[in-house]
Amino acid sequence: MPVLPILCELAGALLLAAGNERGSRALLRRPVPLAPRRLARLTGFALLAIALWGLIRDESNLLFALTTWTLSCGSALLAAALACTLRDNPPARTHTHGRTRARQNATDTVP
């Protein structure tokens, strides 16, 4: 079991979540400025790249490694999204101004 690439992917996915506006607000429970978010995002991408390199080394086959990496990245991102959901602070969001909430809803896919 390639433990190191898995850990790299999980860490990378969490950093990508921290680099995302909503993700960072959920994880850190406060708004995060753009610069640290950009740094987190870049580090996240770097960790995902390291995970790919680790998988290529483990599998000794580029296609096998790419397939595994793609699938496991999806699962890691989902785990990060779950972490964001669990960390999200519902009471803070109930105070969202009604007009802001309405604007958010209006710009979502399904009205």
Binding site: N20, R22, G74, S75, A80, A81, V110
Partner: peptide, 30 residues
């Protein structure tokens, strides 16, 4: 990308839309 890590539970239709988008987007290459 904005909603990449978004799932708002216990919000009826909004939660189902979030779940649909999240599960669709994170594993989209697959």
């Amino acid at each position: 990308f904005t909603d990449f890590f978004t799932f708002r539970p216990r919000k009826g239709q909004r939660s189902w839309l979030d779940a649909h988008n999240l599960l669709g987007v994170t594993v989209l290459p697959f």
